[in-house]
Design a protein around this nucleic acid. Structure first.
Lengths: 234, 234
DNA sequence: ACTTTAAAATCTGTATACGATACGCCCGCA
DNA sequence: TGCGGGCGTATCGTATACAGATTTTAAAGT
């Protein structure tokens, strides 16, 4: 097919499977793949103009990493259970305070400036009522400080539970009373970073996680009394 | 080739790739694969009597999980760096105290009996001077309590850094003064489990991790002054 | 009209084949 | 004898093909 693109330079940087994996991961992290989307290797392969194998590699890799779930009919977003979300709140309380402490101690001014930008953008988006922009900005803020965690192993642990976090974010974002909590939490965390205050950073994130859990539990009870997306027929 | 084994029941439980993955993972966890072993997909495929694809799937999966490293000349054990090991000691201090606390609160008597068996076996092996048996028993003890961590997400985090732990174990096992530390640490942890004492379990594991780090640092300095395995030519 | 059964479509897993790349080795040359 | 360039081989990445399994669809019988 399009195998004649550039044989000699096929992997300008990486393999096709790697490229597909990264693209799909980006879509997953940006929430561009919904719960009812089904990813099938042949379709993905067709989209990228390659054979099934690289697409299959990427999809299997994502599913083994927990970012997708393999069903008998294609790959879908993993069903995140209530229990798992509670487990991950527990895990976050263990690791994220240390992570932000380390960030506060090691962040440089350039990285700090980037974070400041996202915080300002989130606040402005909230004030102008643009929920989606605020969602993206607060996501960039989180990804930003995670990216500069100096302990690489710790960073990987935190990056691993992005999908459940995404689910929680989407659920809690519907209730606008959570928006100032998020923006203020981000601002406080940024301030602690700017002051290189490791203790304040740890305290802030602990409080932020707690508020997030409260908001999640509230969203769950609200959803149970009035389900917003009746799935299929059930 | 041997495609005629049992076509209708080919996946009695799982795919060939999954079987190969699990077998190799077992070998890795039991330390049966040394630093100079090269795993090549064709060889693995030949050993299991299948084509390259399932073998390749398994190998790539292991490498993406961090259990192997893909080189241009086969898959090898990942070089665990000193920095990474220190990072993981940091991570362990964050998550393992909570993990053993949860275990102490939820373990049932059957699981407790299994753990007791491994503790006794390790002590007897140490007293009779059988290092290898003691190594295996203490490994079974650790795998035992990890397996009963009720928080599934937390369990997966801990299971992820098994390879670096394996490296540390091998390095520190050479020095026999560490053996009683390990056996006593396991015994104390078991005792805390048996008493359902979550606080004691957390304290014990913290102390155990600290001793492990000290022993590791000692082993590193000893190795630097007198390298036991001169790598290649350097 | 409802149930039951059979066929077709769809998707996964595996096999085989081919092209490209990287490394090592050998030979020629200085 | 030492060094550099070309060649061979080992290995990976991808393409294509086929078989098994499962789900869906449709048809037929009650």
């Amino acid at each position: 097919m399009s195998a004649l693109l550039e044989p000699g330079r096929a992997r300008g940087q990486q393999s096709q499977a790697q490229i597909i994996h990264d693209v799909l991961m980006g879509r997953l992290q940006r929430g561009e793949i919904g719960p009812e989307d089904r990813l099938v290797d042949t379709s993905v392969a067709a989209e990228f103009g390659v054979s099934r194998m690289p697409a299959r590699d990427a999809l299997m890799r994502l599913s083994h990493g927990g970012y997708l779930e393999a069903t008998t009919r294609g790959f879908v977003l993993p069903r995140v259970t209530h229990t798992e979300i509670l487990e991950i709140f527990d895990l976050r309380r263990l690791v994220e305070p240390r992570a932000v402490s380390l960030v506060a101690q090691t962040i440089d001014s350039g990285q700090l400036a980037e974070l400041e930008e996202t915080v300002i953008a989130a606040r402005k988006a909230m004030q102008s009522g643009n929920s989606e922009l605020m969602f993206k900005a607060s996501e960039r803020f989180r990804n930003g400080w995670i990216a500069v965690i100096p302990n690489h192993s710790l960073r990987k642990v935190i990056q691993r539970y992005m999908t459940p976090i995404q689910v929680v974010r989407m659920m809690t974002f519907d209730d606008r009373v959570n928006h100032p909590l998020i923006v203020d939490g981000n601002t406080n965390l940024y301030t602690a970073f700017a002051r290189r205050d490791a203790v304040a950073a740890a305290d802030t994130i602990l409080s932020f996680i707690h508020k997030g859990e409260t908001a999640y539990l509230k969203a769950v009870s609200a959803e149970r009394s009035q389900p917003q997306q009746p799935a299929k027929s059930a």
